[in-house]
């Protein structure tokens, strides 16, 4: 995977550095510009409410997420965490309040969601499934190349011509990740993407998520029921209870984080006790 990453660096830069200095400068500027473009968007949520019928799921969420932050949202089932994510992703209509993404004009391709189910098209080869993620650029000439690059990032480029049905659960989820990444999103929302995977696959997927997040710098919002996963990956953990942000915990642990370290474990313990005390009240 390391080598795959290295080879995916733009070759133009290497070539031009050797030959023309001005060209090299142009190339570097291009890259910087792209860096700016692909970096994350900040997210501001004010007074967000959502009900389904008589059931008020979100009762006023106020939240600011700085650009490029990795936020985990935890809470017991039915607390509204998935609804919050679906609202951020624009999959549900907002009842009251607002969600804004800084001052920039956003494209649909800037916000992507990854679900618990891979949701791959069973009748499309792996590569075409990734191309779906390009949105309106699907028919552009470099669609193949971009999809291949995204597949390389998740280490599955050798499966490009396979049907999804022959892949394992973890591989399918990696294809779904490549599909979400291929349009270089600026906000990536994860709805328990690792929930259906076995323990070992989960750990390697968590590493993969962390790596692509660090490489691409998007704003990541991860909904999970696994507090250990939340503290291992996120800069900040939000505990949602009864439709509100009950706790907002910063995870100031240096990366790369060592799984099972005492620091993470104590943090996990305190968040779990928040969750359980909320459970006792009801």
């Amino acid at each position: 995977m390391q080598t795959a990453l290295r080879t995916s660096l733009p070759e133009t830069e290497l070539a031009s550095r050797a030959n023309f200095a001005p060209a090299a400068r142009v190339a570097r500027e291009d890259r910087q510009e792209r860096q700016v473009h692909t970096s994350g968007l900040p997210l501001s949520i004010r007074g967000l409410r959502k009900s389904f019928g008589d059931n008020e799921v979100l009762r006023g969420i106020d939240l600011h997420i700085p650009a490029g932050q990795f936020v985990a949202i935890v809470g017991k089932s039915g607390c509204g965490k998935s609804t919050l994510l679906r609202l951020i992703a624009g999959l549900e209509k907002i009842d009251a309040g607002s969600i804004s993404f800084g001052d920039a004009a956003i494209q649909p391709e800037d916000i992507r969601v990854m679900f618990q189910e891979p949701r791959l098209l069973p009748w499309a080869r792996v590569l075409s499934n990734v191309e779906v993620g390009l949105g309106r650029d699907r028919s552009s000439g470099d669609a193949h190349a971009r999809a291949e690059k995204a597949l390389t990032e998740v280490g599955l480029v050798d499966k490009r011509d396979q049907w999804p049905s022959v892949l394992s659960g973890g591989q399918k989820q990696r294809v779904a990740l490549a599909r979400a990444l291929v349009s270089r999103p600026r906000v990536l929302a994860f709805d328990e993407p690792l929930g259906a995977l076995d323990a070992l696959t989960r750990i390697s997927m968590q590493r993969l998520l962390e790596r692509v997040w660090r490489d691409q710098g998007f704003t990541a919002i991860l909904v999970t029921h696994d507090v250990a996963e939340a503290v291992a990956l996120a800069d900040r953990v939000l505990v949602i209870d009864e439709g509100r942000v009950a706790h907002d915990v910063m995870v100031n642990v240096a990366r790369p984080r060592e799984r099972g370290s005492a620091e993470l474990a104590s943090l996990e313990g305190s968040i779990l006790s928040h969750l359980l005390s909320a459970d006792d009240r009801t």
Binding site: L91, F115, E117, V132, G133, R179
Partner: peptide, 11 residues
């Protein structure tokens, strides 16, 4: 779920 996926990806 696939139809929702298609909509999200701007089909």
């Amino acid at each position: 779920q696939l139809i929702e996926m298609g909509r999200i990806y701007g089909m």
